[in-house]
Amino acid sequence: MSEQLKESLSAVMDDEADEFEIRRVLNEATTDPELRGVWERFHLVRSVMRAEGRLRATGALSAQFWSRVDVADAAGVAGVVESGGGALRASRPAWVGWGQRIAGVAVASGVAAAVILGFGANDNAVVLAPTIAVVEPVAAIPSPAARAMFDDEVDSRADVPVSVDRQRAQAYMLHHANHVALTNGGVVPFVKVAAFESQ
């Protein structure tokens, strides 16, 4: 896995990749298991970060999540800082920072309870450990103008690779809710359908 590819993947995850870079990462991922592995982990971290969040068919996920990720402090401390949905992107993160951040994802108080899921490729014992994460926001507060104030204002431009997964998950969740409501019935399943539909 070349440094250039890592940079590209980093850019994709960071909502800074252009169309060419996205295509290149997608192409490479079909043949490069290492890249796939890394990418999967990024997905996982992101999913975990959004553990209590909702899916959205528009796939604004990438932009939204990574816009909340501060590029951490210069001291290299593993940390992810909730910036209130702000589009805070000081610079493209250094590649080496990824591993550390994945190892020690910390969530600001905006996310009440996050879980860290640790599993290896062949790991049957899944570890589900609630984390208590308190992070002092060390970065500069983004200017109000830079923030997306509402979910649908988040730029989803660079979200192509992610939305496939998210849409699949959403479609299956809707299907499941439909099925449950049809066979099992019940208030909660039905309302869930309504909720998934509206996302």
């Binding site: 796939r36 999913s47 209590e52 599993f119 496939v164 699949r168």
Partner: peptide
């Protein structure tokens, strides 16, 4: 699938 594969873990509320 040819594109968009990952060990996805998503959660919406209880689902």
């Amino acid at each position: 699938p040819e594109a968009g594969f990952s060990k996805l873990v998503s959660r919406i509320g209880a689902t």
